[in-house]
Amino acid sequence: MSRRMRMWVLATGGLAVAVLLVAGYARLPHFGGAVHPYGERAVSAALARHTANVISSVNFDLRAFDTLGEETILFGAVLGTVVLLRQTRDEREVPPAPAEVAPPVRRYALIMLPVALLTGLYVVAHGQLSPGGGFQGGVVVATALHLLYIGADYRALEKIRPVGTYEVGDAAGEAAYLVLGVAGLLGGSAFLANTLLPYGTFNTLASGGTVPLLNAAVGMEVACAVVVLLARFLDQAVEIEEDNGSAMGKES
């Protein structure tokens, strides 16, 4: 294809996207308007199921099936990373040298590790009450563990991070979400239907039916997935080196 032709294809595609976008935006409700058809229905549905955080109700109750899809995307993405960033035959593992860290930074990281872990678990547990939930809390938990890399070195992190266990945890979190969905199918009405558990008292930790359980499943999946993801990146950046003979030319 000549350069001129490519520009025409680009222009046609860009024009089509622009037309579709404008057509879509024209039908949107006005910004900051008083009428919210979807919002009103979502809020009344969330209140009926005693879920104080409407967003959690939308994510883990009204549209829990969508969230299963999103969770699976993360699962698949991490699986792909694990396959792509594995140690290949022409690479070798070099034990990382210990790093020097200033004592105040080391102390800060060691004090903050449990604080950040607790914050993450708090965010997961309060997903049905306040902003947050499984995804956000899971990321905080996973980041908390890596304070050990920042405050000490990679060898210290590797001691508390058997990657195999976290891979199992990743799969278990994903499976728990599915099991809860099937439980809704068997014990209630439909896949992932929130009809299984009592809705509890509004604005307390035990409210929202299956929402907190689904949050916990997602939290576990996300935390383990991020740990596995970072483990692959850290291995590549810190430990794995190409063999000297094959460093030239051969890109794997």
Binding site: V94, E100, V101, V105
Partner: peptide, 16 residues
């Protein structure tokens, strides 16, 4: 403080 030199030895020579 860390930005102002908290990781003195984390140079290219060490692979932490």
């Amino acid at each position: 403080r860390a930005l102002a030199g908290g990781f003195p030895g984390a140079g290219a020579s060490t692979r932490d």
